[in-house]
């Protein structure tokens, strides 16, 4: 936790300075932070040893909610759109969670995949509502009541996202240190004992599932607003796999790692797409295997040595 705070503080300062020193990277970084929110959602479930190959569903739920609300021309502000997206994702997750939390491991991964792919197909096929495969455009909303031009919107949207990320990281960090968060680790290591303590592991996982979807929805909303576009691919299983990938890259079960991982990922992706378009998936694949084999704690833990402190 101490390392997390220290590392987080350093990372925060570095990231916060970007719009001043490397202005062209502002949008890229905002996207990375938005994706990081979804990755953090995956990280929460990883604490319980569960991976979802369908979190794209909640990411898309957040993004499409924002898109629909903007298209409805209600004049909603960014600061209202984002919570709305997160809320819709959470509601869907809590409802579906009644089924999902009965499954573990491969089955958990697969039932999530199945549902997200159903959503993907619907988003693609219900052309009149969702815009089909082309997706929907999201016109630039106001930010804190202000109508901003593109550049200043991008500038302030970055800081808004950064503020959200900091608050979310602190709240999630606290949650993970609480009995509910520690209960997730207990689910990973021994559900039998949890049952014999009189605890419903399904309920603990259900809460985590809701939290995790809320984060994914929030992330999806940020992406919808920043990129001005949503598409069915948001719910596609490869996108969900990407979230899991980044979570492992950043250090499974690590709050700061989720964001560090997604920033690294976004940078690599941008450069790889430009310089090695044919090989960039190979680069990702090889690094994923390398991390799993040689550095299972992920990027953020590597520099602080192998042992994780008990505190």
């Amino acid at each position: 936790m101490r390392f997390d705070l220290l590392f987080g503080a350093i990372a925060f300062c570095a990231v916060a300075g970007v719009p001043f020193f490397i202005p062209w990277a502002t949008v890229m970084l905002t996207i990375a932070l938005g994706v990081g929110l979804a990755v953090l959602g995956v990280v929460v479930l990883l604490r319980a040893g569960q991976i979802s190959f369908g979190h794209g569903l909640y990411y898309a739920a957040g993004a499409y909610t924002v898109a629909f609300l903007v298209q409805a021309r209600l004049g909603l502000d960014t600061l209202l759109l984002l919570p709305a997206g997160a809320l819709v994702a959470t509601v869907i997750a809590v409802a579906f969670g009644f089924f999902a939390v009965r499954y573990r491991d491969i089955f958990f991964a697969m039932i999530n995949l199945a549902v997200s792919m159903v959503a993907f197909s619907l988003l693609e096929k219900l052309y009149s509502i969702t815009g089909g495969g082309d997706g929907l455009n999201v016109a630039r909303p106001t930010l804190a009541g202000l109508k901003l031009g593109r550049v200043s919107f991008e500038f302030w949207m970055f800081y808004t996202t950064l503020a959200i990320v900091v608050v979310v990281a602190l709240v999630v960090g606290r949650y993970l240190a609480s009995p509910l968060g520690k209960g997730l680790e207990a689910i990973k290591s021994n559900e039998t004992r949890l049952e014999y303590l009189g605890v419903s592991s399904a309920r603990i996982l259900h809460i985590a599932y809701g939290v995790s979807a809320c984060l994914a929805g929030l992330g999806g909303g940020v992406i919808a607003i920043v990129t001005g576009h949503v598409a069915p691919e948001f719910a596609y299983w490869v996108r969900s796999g990407e979230f899991v990938f980044i979570a492992i890259l950043g250090g499974a079960g690590n709050v700061v790692g989720a964001f560090a991982g997604s920033i690294v990922y976004e940078i690599v992706r941008n450069y790889a797409a430009a310089f090695a378009a044919d090989y960039w998936q190979t680069i990702l694949g090889v690094s994923l295997i390398a991390i799993i084999m040689f550095a299972p704690q992920g990027l953020t833990q590597m520099r602080f040595g192998k042992k994780r402190g008990g505190a």
Partner: peptide
């Protein structure tokens, strides 16, 4: 090399292979 690892990680390794094979 990964038979002893967690199921979740095994799944991810084949996911990585999927990404590589797609490029191939």
């Amino acid at each position: 090399r990964i038979y002893g690892k967690e199921q979740v990680l095994q799944l991810l390794v084949t996911f990585a292979v999927f990404m590589i094979l797609e490029d191939v």
